[in-house]
């Protein structure tokens, strides 16, 4: 009995030891990346970085102000296209379709679209928008990102809406509220936290996308306020600069990497605070 107990205890310690060790290993790498992004990135940040457009190589100064604006614009536009559509489609799956054939096909298709390589989406938008309309544009980039975002939003919205217990819906319906009203003011409210988290993850994911933008929003070395012209983004600029021959380009790429990381983290944290405020 004692021996058996010792053995179980030993197995317990070994297993727990292994999981702590792997956790430490994984967390170590993640923080290593973060540390490098912050240390190398901070070294590259200065006032010019936020206020100037890129300078040619050999020229002192220069910044990424236009790319910062571009990333913001394209991400906001993509969110405006993708999120309402995604939430409504998710609503259909959870509130109306449920076990219908259409719903299961939509689910399956979304699951595949989630894993669709983003570069292929870029190729697709290039073929259906950029080429026929004769030019790269911020709008095309936003469309590509919206397509990438859509299935993520659909699936999270559905999952989160489904977590709202049916008894809640029934209670609201019993009070005489129409189904759509129940959905909007009861079910959405109940699932708000989850949906916002999902949307925020989707926004964060697309704001860091590079591949689908290479052939849609393209890039621009100047300020651009026209949605139908090529527009710079932080990620495409990182790609170009990291591959480029100049040391100060690499510096700028680290700066942009820090910025996009910080932006992603900020979006995440802010939406958490909003959710906490509403729910509390």
């Amino acid at each position: 009995m004692g021996l058996h107990y010792q053995r179980r205890k030993l197995a317990n310690y070994i297993a727990l030891g292994v999981s702590v060790a792997s956790a430490v290993f994984g967390i170590f790498f993640l923080f290593w990346i973060l540390k490098d992004v912050f240390t190398f990135g901070f070294a590259a940040l200065n006032a010019d970085f936020f206020t100037q457009v890129p300078a040619p190589p050999g020229e002192a100064g220069g910044g990424m102000a236009n790319a910062i604006l571009g990333t913001l614009t394209i991400t906001v536009l993509a969110t405006a296209f993708g999120v309402p559509a995604g939430i409504l489609a998710g609503t259909y799956l959870s509130e109306y379709g449920r076990k219908s054939k259409t719903a299961s096909v939509v689910r399956f298709v979304s699951d595949i679209l989630v894993s669709a390589p983003s570069i292929v989406i870029g190729v697709f938008v290039y073929a259906i928008v950029v080429k026929p309309f004769g030019g790269f544009s911020a709008l095309a980039g936003a469309l590509a990102l919206a397509i990438i975002m859509l299935p993520v939003v659909i699936r999270t919205a559905e999952e989160m809406l489904k977590l709202v217990p049916d008894s809640t819906r029934e209670a609201a319906l019993a009070l005489g509220a129409p189904h759509w009203k129940v959905t909007v003011s009861v079910v959405y409210r109940g699932a708000l936290r989850g949906i916002v988290t999902g949307v925020m993850l989707a926004v964060a994911r697309v704001s860091g996308e590079t591949a689908p933008l290479l052939f849609t929003s393209f890039n621009n070395s100047f300020w651009n306020f026209n949605l139908t012209e090529p527009t710079a983004t932080l990620t495409v600029t990182i790609f170009n600069y990291a591959m480029g021959p100049y040391e100060d380009w690499h510096q700028m790429a680290w700066g942009a990497a820090l910025l996009i990381t910080a932006m992603v983290l900020l979006v995440t944290i802010i939406s958490r605070i909003i959710v906490r405020g509403r729910a509390g």
């Binding site: 799956l93 259409t102 679209l113 759509w180």
Partner: peptide
């Protein structure tokens, strides 16, 4: 108005869900 709202809301939701299949 709820019934109409329901029809519209359901229709729109269905439209967006179906558009995913079309997109694919």
């Amino acid at each position: 108005s709820g019934k109409l709202g329901d029809a519209v809301f359901k229709g729109v939701a269905y439209g967006f869900a179906f558009s995913v299949i079309l997109l694919m």
